[in-house]
């Protein structure tokens, strides 16, 4: 049992984007993607994380789901910087359609319009959307 998995990726760095489209708590998607992001950090790939559609609600400030018997995992997004995952994007259209602004989020994000996010997506080697 090693502390971190060791895989021979032969120094190949691929661009991975995790795309969050689902609201938290109602389904397991948000938590599963967050865990995938943390695991992927061990492989030293070029990771970015995008929030669009109801996914923007995942990083809204002030979550308190303990009465649901669930863990508040939104603080974990703030840990991503420590994992060298610095590229967090929010799609402007989704944010505005839901009455949110950049100050509503628990973590510092880049707000980008759909056209720009579309270009960023097109550059990726792997997209994991949920």
């Amino acid at each position: 049992m090693s502390e971190e998995p060791v895989f021979d990726t032969q120094g190949v760095v691929r661009k991975f984007m995790f795309v969050n489209r689902k609201a938290p708590y109602g389904t397991i998607y948000a938590l599963e993607i967050l865990e995938s992001v943390l695991i992927s950090a061990a492989f030293e790939q070029d990771i970015s994380v995008a929030f669009l559609d109801d996914g923007v609600f995942q990083i809204k400030k002030g979550h308190d789901p303990k009465d649901l018997g669930m863990k508040n995992f939104s603080p974990t997004y703030r840990a991503l910087g420590g994992y060298d995952i610095e590229k967090l994007y929010v799609e402007k259209e989704s944010m505005e359609a839901r009455g949110l602004g950049p100050d509503d989020f628990v973590v510092k994000v880049q707000v980008v319009p759909a056209a720009e996010l579309s270009k960023l997506m097109a550059e990726q080697d792997v997209l994991i959307t949920g």
Binding site: E3, E4, T76, A79, G82
Partner: peptide, 15 residues
């Protein structure tokens, strides 16, 4: 308490 996860070793040593 701050992040709600146990850090990976690399992250722990850095912190």
């Amino acid at each position: 308490n701050e992040y709600q996860i146990a850090p990976a070793i690399r992250v722990l040593t850095k912190a």
